[in-house]
Amino acid sequence: MQIIKSLLLTTLLLPVLAMADVSLINTAYKVVLVEQANGAVTEEWQDLGRVVPGDTIGYRISYKNSGTETASDVAINNPIPKNTDYLANSAKGLNSQITYSADMGQTFARAAELFVIKDGKQQLARPTDITNIRWSLAAIAAGAEGSVEFKVRVQ
C-alpha cells in the first residue's frame, strides 16, 4: 500500500514525459507571389534561397504528439524574429485561438484588443508593434499532428 501510494504521488507530481511526447519543427520559407498562366496570382512558399530586405518570410511550425496521452492546454509561442516585422493577419492555425503581445510576451490579447501607448495616446497596436504570437489549442490528441504559421517581412 505504501508503495502504491508513493507511486501515485510520483505520478502526480512529476512531469509525465513518457505519456505525451510533443515535438515542434519550425521551418522558414520564402513567400513569393507567382502569376499563373491564367493570370491569377497565387502565393507560393518556396525554399529560402536568397533573402534580402523587403522579402516576405513564412514560418510554419509543425507540432506532433508522438506519445500515448492527450496534450492539453497547449500554447505555442513564437517571438517575432529580430530584424523582421509581423505581417498583419498572417498568423493562422486550425482549431487555435491566436493572441498577440506587444510587450515581449508579458501580456497577450486578440489583435482587436491589443493596444499600445504612443506619444501619450492609446492606439490599437499595428502589426509592426507585435512582438510575440501565441496559438492556444485545447488539446493535441495522442498521435495527432498539425501546424500553425505566420509571415514576416525582413526589415
Binding site: P15, V16, I61, Y63, A71, I76, N77, N78, K82
Partner: peptide, 17 residues
C-alpha cells in the same frame, strides 16, 4: 535571422516541460 518557437502543454493537470 533566428527563430525558435516554444510549446507548453499539460497532461491531465500537470504542466510539462
Amino acid at each position: 535571422v533566428d527563430n525558435v518557437a516554444t510549446l507548453d502543454y499539460k497532461v491531465g493537470n500537470t504542466s510539462q516541460p
